[in-house]
Design a protein around this nucleic acid. Structure first.
Lengths: 176, 176
DNA sequence: CGAAGCGATTGCAACTTGCAACCACTTCGG
DNA sequence: CCGAAGTGGTTGCAAGTTGCAATCGCTTCG
């Protein structure tokens, strides 16, 4: 997508790969939303990404080695999978979530996951990454006895939505 | 800089504020490079940022509440300072650095800091943030007996450069 | 066999990026 | 007191990127 790197700095390298308005949003939807198909990523996206932007970002993420793509033929359901490099963006997303939670306005329903992710800390991130390795790479989880982090996050989200319906005092439902 | 947020998601909020090719690079230079003046940020920047881009980014970062600016009059040396929100981007930069280190090509000299930051983990990040609070906000460090993280990082960098000079086997000195 | 769903692509206007030049002002050395 | 160097930017402009809306060819479902 780009020529040679602007410098050999590790932070710069990450910014060059992930530093735009959409790449990390798409990764978030794949990682936390469990979405693996174009239509799914397009229609259920919270921020209303456009289809051409999504197509371009997916292409770039595949080229950058964060995702792989099995096309499955025209008109049929292709699947995007995370690579190990994609899975390892979890700590970045967690750090961004913690920061956004503290320093930006957010809605309670949508920020539950960020809060939970912060409370769980690195141990939870690692469990989540193990689960993602199982789902996307077929590598069995090393601790199958532990609850699946995706379920914890999903349940917390649903609970927050229910809570919000019961007591919707925020100025219009901003999010969904 | 932007209208209303695209959604109430914490990760999205962070991406809207920091998700471009330059904002985090500027913050990196302020945080790890100790640069606080326009000219300093412009001339010593590793990636060769243009002056108009730097001006626009600084303005945006001030507007977003990550930096403050004391103008000091035309022709005189004004100073940019980190706010608490700006200081709390340290974990984000650390996470990006760890990822870049693992999954992108980097040069040894420039990635020492990322490596050190990863090895030190959250305790080191917190010490660094305390030091930044002292420098930029005038809040005394809670643990003055500990070595200043900025010195550790700087010394490691200089050591790496010396090491590299002694044994420069990388294909042309890509970075500086 | 028609409607809905699939993964995109295209056209186009608006905006952003980044190079190069320039600007008004202050400070420093002699 | 004067010129050079340093201060923090702004302006012009070409090239590239973003994002809305419409469309497309295909498959699957009822």
């Amino acid at each position: 997508m780009r020529g040679r790197p602007r410098s050999g700095c590790a932070i710069n390298a990450a910014v060059e790969a992930l530093g735009d308005q959409w790449s990390l949003i798409v990764l978030r939807d794949v990682i936390f939303g469990g979405r693996r198909h174009f239509r799914d990523l397009l229609a259920r996206n919270e921020e209303g990404i456009a289809s051409n932007i999504l197509a371009a970002r997916l292409k770039a993420l595949v080229a950058a080695g964060l995702l792989t793509h099995e096309p499955a033929g025209r008109g049929r359901k292709g699947t995007y999978s995370l690579t190990e490099a994609g899975i390892q963006t979890v700590p970045i997303l967690a750090a961004l979530g913690s920061w956004g939670l503290r320093h930006r306005p957010t809605t309670p329903e949508l920020s539950v996951r960020a809060r939970l992710l912060e409370e769980g800390g690195p141990p939870l991130w690692n469990d989540l990454m193990d689960e993602l390795r199982e789902i996307h790479l077929g590598i069995p989880r090393p601790h199958p006895e532990r609850p699946r982090p995706s379920r914890l996050l999903q349940e917390a989200y649903l609970r927050a939505v229910a809570e919000h319906k019961k007591n919707p005092r925020d100025g219009e439902g901003a999010g969904v």
